[in-house]
Amino acid sequence: MAKCDICGKGISTGIKLSHSHIRTKRTWSPNVQKVRALVNGAPKKINVCTRCLRSGKVQRAI
């Protein structure tokens, strides 16, 4: 569900390692926001990660 429509960044998986060395699976989700942006000149709601918003890859619709 958490996937950026601009860069394609999605959920990454890994292993949580406790002090007693018990390994369990876990996931990291990107910070994805649903924003109104201009897509081909028309406003549309898209899912965008905050890195794409900060870097100016998305022009927000007002």
Rank of each mutant, 00 (worst) to 15 (best):
M1A: 14
M1Y: 07
A2E: 13
A2I: 11
A2D: 07
K3L: 06
K3R: 14
K3S: 08
C4S: 02
C4M: 02
D5I: 05
G8H: 02
G8F: 12
K9I: 06
K9A: 05
G10N: 07
G10H: 08
G10D: 14
G10A: 15
I11F: 07
I11M: 12
I11R: 09
S12A: 13
S12D: 07
S12N: 07
S12T: 14
S12V: 14
S12K: 12
T13P: 00
T13N: 11
G14S: 02
G14L: 04
I15K: 10
I15T: 13
K16N: 05
K16I: 04
L17S: 03
L17A: 04
S18V: 05
H19P: 03
S20G: 12
H21D: 09
H21N: 13
H21C: 11
R23G: 09
K25P: 07
K25W: 14
R26M: 09
T27H: 08
W28D: 11
W28G: 07
W28L: 13
S29E: 13
S29R: 11
S29D: 15
P30W: 03
P30K: 05
P30L: 09
P30I: 07
N31P: 04
V32S: 01
Q33A: 06
Q33W: 09
K34P: 06
V35N: 00
R36A: 12
R36I: 05
R36P: 04
R36C: 11
R36Q: 09
A37F: 01
A37E: 01
A37M: 03
L38V: 12
V39Y: 03
N40V: 05
G41A: 01
A42D: 10
A42W: 08
A42V: 14
A42R: 13
P43Q: 02
P43M: 03
P43W: 07
K45T: 15
K45D: 14
I46S: 00
N47K: 08
N47T: 08
V48R: 00
V48G: 02
C49N: 02
C49T: 04
T50G: 05
T50H: 08
T50K: 03
C52A: 05
C52S: 00
L53D: 01
L53F: 04
L53Q: 00
R54W: 02
R54N: 12
S55F: 08
S55C: 06
S55D: 13
G56W: 05
G56H: 00
K57W: 03
K57F: 05
K57M: 07
V58W: 01
Q59D: 13
Q59V: 12
Q59C: 06
Q59S: 11
R60Y: 06
R60M: 14
A61Y: 04
A61R: 05
I62R: 12
I62L: 15
I62N: 15
I62W: 10
I62Y: 14
